[in-house]
Nucleic acid binder design. Structure first.
Ligand SMILES: [Mn+2]
Ligand SMILES: [Mn+2]
Ligand SMILES: [Mn+2]
Ligand SMILES: [Mn+2]
Lengths: 233, 233
DNA sequence: TGACGAAGTTAGGCACGCCTAATAATATTA
DNA sequence: TAATATTATTAGGCGTGCCTAACTTCGTCA
């Protein structure tokens, strides 16, 4: 699988484990029915998942009996729940996302954030808690953006241009601002949609910017570079 | 699938599309061999993916011929690459992650971040760019943490306790700090590992904290609450 | 006690995404 | 041009994770 996870459980099994975790916490034990309802799957899928989790020693499972977690199951579930919590809090408190949306997104992300990222997110949140101006600053920027609705996200966000790239970075051109002879000149040189640009160097003043494209090297004025929207690598 | 994605392509196909995107940008067209090498899969897997992508009109594909992207394929690939870039830049510039690690993590996350999150991350980065003191502040906090290596991550991060919860939040107890008669008293009351706590209310002064557990309600002193480590929901 | 309904399991099927092995097409070289 | 090497495709298999349909087990209540 290309989407390698390094973790002991698949995204799906992590969700089963979490459902069990919260149900057991609330009621002492979980029944297949509870899990099926929470996750929106059929009972037979739950049976299958329980058999796999039991094989991996994460749950105590005997057919027809109530389900509880093993010690390892509890720890693993707590780790996933912790990631869910951290990511959701980050979305809500730093990115200003709506609670419900944040929770849904977090339930997707919890399966792919690494431990290092989770830890740093938690640290960032501590920092933000101590520096509320950061949170309000971001909210304000976001609010300004929201005035220009109707525009595509890429425009609201402000496109990245060749002028924003650091030395050594590669990018693909997605658009060249038309107007002036510039666009034509660039396209004639091979600087069209889909072409790969590599920034070779930027003068100390930031102008000109030396780029390599299709084997050729050329120097772009900063204003020219800023007219070329790219997706960075 | 529980891990619902709402996007038109699976994580796997998004990676194939991106491999094609960068190869085409660099060389004008892609061959199955290039893609197989980049993604670390066998050639036959590439053929399968190409057939699927061709069905979905994302690539121009004729057996044995070089591969290029359709207009939709280019747009879709650019969107994924954009998410990869944003997430990686966030990891590097805000979270201070190592470039190589950040890139790997980003290649996993690019398939699960929603558009709203990506947009807000980009905005946050703009804010941080405009306020470099924020960035160094986070780095500093992270550096302090790194001094206390050897400790488990949960300790470095500082555990969340009942005292950190807001009114209405639920959590599962993972540990009760031992010492004093407190631990025993709490455990006797049912406040042990695995139990669900719900914060009912916090006095204006922050003390006491009213919690509900196993149907019972009780009031905890702030110092008591701070001795109970939890995983929040 | 026995019948009934709810809950849980098993069997079989399907889509996805990878693999290996065999085969086919294309490129390279003698 | 013919032999050979490289590249690509097909066929068939496997694991995961979901489904439906049929069946079994369990608890309840007459
Ligand atoms: Mn989840
Ligand atoms: Mn979750
Ligand atoms: Mn990826
Ligand atoms: Mn990627």
């Amino acid at each position: 699988m290309i989407f390698e996870s390094t973790r002991s459980l698949s995204a799906s099994l992590e969700d089963y484990l979490q459902a069990i975790f919260w149900t057991v916490a609330a009621k002492g034990a979980a029944r297949a029915k509870d899990i099926a309802r929470q996750l929106g799957v059929k009972a037979s899928s739950v049976t299958g998942a329980l058999q796999t989790l039991a094989e991996k020693k994460f749950v105590h499972y005997q057919p027809y009996e109530a389900i509880t977690l093993t010690a390892e199951g509890f720890d693993e579930a707590a780790r996933v729940a912790q990631r869910h919590f951290i990511v959701r809090e980050f979305f809500v408190r730093v990115l200003g996302l709506d609670e419900a949306v944040a929770d849904k997104e977090a339930c997707r992300m919890e399966h792919c954030v690494g431990d290092d990222v989770a830890e740093r997110l938690a640290t960032l949140m501590e920092f933000v808690k101590a520096h509320p101006e950061m949170q309000s600053g971001v909210s304000q920027l976001l609010a300004e953006r929201d005035h220009s609705d109707g525009m595509p996200a890429s425009v609201r966000r402000g496109p990245v241009t060749v002028a924003d790239l650091r030395s050594g970075q590669k990018a693909v051109i997605v658009a060249v601002r038309s107007g002036a002879a510039l666009a034509r000149r660039l396209v004639d040189m091979g600087l069209g949609r889909g072409a790969l640009v590599e920034v070779e160097g930027v003068a100390p003043t930031g102008d000109p910017i030396r780029v390599k494209i299709r084997g050729y090297q050329l120097a772009l004025r900063r204003t020219e570079a800023a007219a070329i929207s790219v997706v960075g690598k």
